[in-house]
Simulated assay, not measured.
Amino acid sequence: MDPKRKKEIKERLLGSKFRLISERLYLAESKNAGDVFPDEECFREYHRGYQKQKEQWNVDPLKTITKELKKKDDAEMTVADIGCGEGKLAHLLRKKAKVNSFDLVSTAPHITVANMNNLPLPKKSVSAAVFCLSLMNKDYGAALDEARRVLKKRGALLVTEIESRLPQDKGSFIDEVESHGFALVKERNIDELFCYFEFARSKKPLVKKKETLKPCRYKKR
């Protein structure tokens, strides 16, 4: 087979696997999210597909997160990178902060295996919590509660999200996050694909609002 054609077929298969696993993650309950990845190789394939997707983006949302954290005046910054993937934020912030990296599978020594609803961190122990395209399970509200638990008083919650997942009125998503005990600090479009939100830990709410983010639906190919 022609090498160029062979490469094209491999990339299509990789893209198909990425879309399939992504859809399963969006529709899974958090307690079952680990079942989506039966082994480490499946997780690695998913992230290889993710890297191929990134090649089509004009910006990398993780770089936005990195820039925002580097601006903060905190000489002893600690960060919880929740749903860290390959754990790149720890490398990008190595001179600025201590980053605790968490995901369902560990592909590097600095990544701790953990469900995002049950992080192995004491309460009020980190300066910032990060969800970079990782609020994926249909009951992700529980992950917001866990982020609040581990954040220090007035700690920062940084979220990047795909524009198409947000409700038509972004205020609904902001209200939802605030109902978990946060106050909006700022929000903006990174580009036509992604949005950035920053919240501060605030008073515990009386009533939580239901999840508003939509699962990504991929076209059948």
Rank of each mutant, 00 (worst) to 15 (best):
S101H: 05
G15E: 02
E41T: 10
E8R: 06
K153P: 13
N137D: 14
L193E: 09
E11R: 05
M136Q: 10
K6S: 15
N58C: 04
G85S: 10
F102I: 05
K10F: 10
F199M: 02
K63L: 15
K17Y: 02
V59Q: 08
R44N: 06
R19H: 04
K153V: 11
V99H: 05
Y140W: 02
L20Y: 07
E55F: 11
E86F: 06
A129T: 10
R19L: 03
N118C: 13
G181W: 00
R154Y: 13
P109N: 14
E163Q: 15
K214F: 08
C132W: 01
K7N: 14
I162W: 08
P122L: 11
T107V: 10
S16D: 01
K186D: 10
L62Y: 04
G171S: 03
G34E: 12
P167N: 05
A183T: 09
H91T: 15
A114Q: 10
F43S: 01
F182C: 01
K153S: 14
E178V: 13
L157C: 02
V59H: 05
S172V: 13
W57C: 02
E163A: 13
L157S: 04
N115H: 09
G49L: 00
K124Q: 13
E76V: 05
A75Q: 09
C195W: 14
S101G: 14
K88F: 12
S30R: 05
S30P: 14
Y50R: 04
G83Q: 07
V207H: 12
N100L: 14
V130H: 00
F194E: 03
G87H: 09
C132Y: 03
V159M: 07
C42A: 09
K63V: 07
V185Q: 15
V105S: 12
N100H: 15
I65A: 03
R154E: 14
N118K: 14
A75M: 07
K170G: 07
H47A: 04
C195A: 14
E163N: 10
P61N: 07
K88I: 04
L69T: 10
R221M: 00
F37N: 07
V36I: 12
T78N: 07
K123L: 08
P109V: 10
K67W: 15
R12I: 06
S179L: 08
L151N: 01
S164N: 07
A108G: 15
S101Q: 03
K152E: 05
L25T: 00
K98E: 15
G83E: 06
G49M: 00
K204Q: 08
E41M: 06
M77Y: 04
P215G: 05
E23K: 02
E55K: 14
E192N: 07
L89Y: 00
R5I: 13
T78S: 14
P205H: 10
K70E: 15
A183Y: 09
R221P: 08
K31Y: 07
L135H: 02
D2W: 06
L135A: 01
F43V: 00
F131P: 07
E198V: 04
E11A: 09
G34R: 01
E40N: 11
R165V: 00
K10E: 11
V59D: 05
E76A: 13
